[in-house]
């Protein structure tokens, strides 16, 4: 007796091959879509963690410089270099919104991130609070924020 496989003719085998190919491609495309998503998610996570690290270091540096100087303009100058920053507010409350790249470099042309720094005077005199928040350049979602301070008794107002 001949086995059912052997009894399949050459043309039938070809048909089987093409059918298998179609089924394999169908499953493979589904599996690939899932796997591709996993790779894309990994890549996004990897970039996000690098960006979070940079934001955290940038905020730390800003907090340390501000703690030393108590001045927003000096903090900005030391952190991002001499540029014309749009600092708004009065002598008790100042804020600035900086466009940054993902590497946390100042870039008015390419704002992938925004770093918002707000400084306000607190009681007693000489105590200043700085609020730093990073937001996404496209949707404005808050990504990271810290609160820092400076106590400089001789300094009455923010600058």
């Amino acid at each position: 007796m001949r086995s059912p496989m052997k009894s399949v003719s050459a043309g039938g085998k070809l048909n089987l091959f093409f059918m298998e190919m179609i089924i394999v491609l169908f499953f493979f495309s589904i599996a690939s879509a899932v796997i591709l998503n996993a790779f894309a998610a990994s890549d996004r996570l990897s970039r996000e963690s690098g960006r979070l690290e940079r934001m955290s270091f940038c905020a730390q540096s800003a907090a340390e410089i501000f703690s030393q100087t108590g001045s927003l303009s000096e903090t900005l100058e030391k952190l991002f270099g001499s540029n014309s920053y749009d600092i708004r507010g009065d002598e008790y409350d100042l804020q600035v919104r900086l466009p940054l790249t993902e590497e946390c470099a100042y870039s008015p042309e390419n704002a992938e991130l925004y770093m918002i720094m707000a400084v306000e005077s607190e009681e007693p005199e000489g105590l200043f609070k700085m609020y730093i928040v990073f937001t996404d350049g496209s949707d404005g979602e808050a990504l990271y924020d810290i609160m820092a301070g400076a106590y400089l008794p001789g300094k009455g107002t923010v600058s």
Partner: peptide, 22 residues
């Protein structure tokens, strides 16, 4: 040393990270 603060820079591969610390 940078204005009374310590600036730490570490580079590994393409990544460069800098932070100030008192």
């Amino acid at each position: 040393e940078d204005g009374g603060l310590v600036r730490i820079t570490v580079r590994d591969g393409d990544d460069v990270f800098t932070a100030f610390c008192k």
